[in-house]
Design a protein around this nucleic acid. Structure first.
Lengths: 222, 222
DNA sequence: ACCTTACTCGTACGCTGTACGATTTCGCAA
DNA sequence: TTGCGAAATCGTACAGCGTACGAGTAAGGT
């Protein structure tokens, strides 16, 4: 099977998924493909182009619902799919919006989103809605990426474990001082997250619906 | 004036502001301070610690309003200050929330935000509100960072310029085909942004108020 | 048989972070 | 003043990075 741009990009995405973006070096990627390092440069002009291509693959995985339903459910599905894709490819989170030259898959997604919204909103309002929703989705994915746990149980477990260490350790004074200095934060972390945990999916959809409903209200009262 | 951790971090932040994070290499930073490269490692144990320190400086610049006023104006001011700080230090945008170990300034900010919200909301709702607002702010900053223009006039100028090239160039067919393929996107870009431009500050505050009002409504109807 | 084109890859260069050990500088006790 | 331990500085070296350059190979058309 010959090398090709597609094969290179696919391998790069898989490698980044598996071992992180920093492991996705040219020599390493070439090894993965059983090929010399410089061979990659025939199909990809630079590492920047490689990453641009990888990002566009990520965009292409976003599912765009048909234009049948109303704008709200369409945007909702779109947002949820976006978050899922971003969670499959966490390395892409800081890059999606920071690409100098967006690829075709990026155009496709934005065009579809604007299409859904234009059905119900003015051009000005469509731009605003797109901006707010996109910002929320990327920002949420960013938070999710850095969180040291995966789900509600994990969050509760981690918080509880830290509470245990809190009592057991000799650093107790320091941590107690910390809780003293930041009482509100301590209340939330120790008093709530440790008990019921934190469910990212639930939190995401709560905020998403909050924004969607607010947009609807703005439209009706405009 | 002797070297110190503070002096190193300050110089690093200034260098990153001026020439970008990628220019902030250890040797370069040492030159900036008129010092050998390895001298930095006496005050900072690794580049990671350097960056963690830089991020905490950024957090420390966020202005936290007094707890006198109501939660809404407090959170509004806080959000606006956050965006301003993030725009002064664009290199920090992808890093703020991706730090494994948040510094004290980060705790301080989150504690204050939670404090404002707890005055009006339940613990659960406070967590949600914090999550939504933070996600929006970081996401918006991310969009702003990658945009190839700075303000409304710039946006209009750029869009218009591209429209000119659109007609002038031999690539016309390609671009026309692009506009054909993505009609909604084309309408927004060519038909609106090119005319009235795009004002980031205005857009940011529109979305911010949208979310703040939605939170207020949720609280009152709960 | 020969040339062209498409493709692969070895070597080398300048950059990065940083481990290690030598060196310099400084404050304080004798 | 001298001497000594600690604090601070820095030169060298190494492994890794992206990639410029040019040599090498394989396949297809004449």
């Amino acid at each position: 099977m010959p090398l090709s741009k597609e094969r290179v990009l696919d391998a790069a995405v898989k490698l980044a998924d598996r071992e992180g973006l920093e492991s996705c070096a040219m020599r390493r990627l070439a090894d993965e493909l059983g090929v010399g390092a410089m061979s990659l440069y025939y199909h990809v002009s630079s590492k920047d182009e490689l990453i641009t291509g990888m990002v566009d693959i990520v965009f292409s995985e976003i599912e765009l619902p048909s234009t049948d339903g109303d704008w709200k459910t369409a945007m909702r599905q779109c947002a949820i799919s976006k978050r899922n894709v971003l969670n499959r490819h966490r390395w892409a989170i800081g890059l999606l919006e920071s690409q100098a030259t967006p690829g075709p898959a990026s155009f496709r997604v934005h065009n579809a989103e604007i299409g859904y919204l234009r059905e119900a909103f003015s051009v000005e309002m469509t731009i605003q809605a797109c901006s707010v929703l996109d910002a929320y989705i990327y920002g949420f994915a960013l938070q999710e990426k850095m969180a040291p746990f995966e789900n509600a149980e994990g969050a509760a477990a981690l918080a509880e474990q830290q509470a245990r260490e809190f009592e057991a350790q000799a650093e107790q004074q320091q941590l107690a001082a910390l809780a003293d200095e930041f009482p509100y934060l301590a209340e939330v972390v120790a008093g709530h997250v440790a008990k019921v945990g934190y469910d990212f999916t639930e939190a995401f959809e709560y905020g998403l619906d909050l924004i969607l409903e607010a947009l609807e209200t703005r439209r009706d009262t405009a």
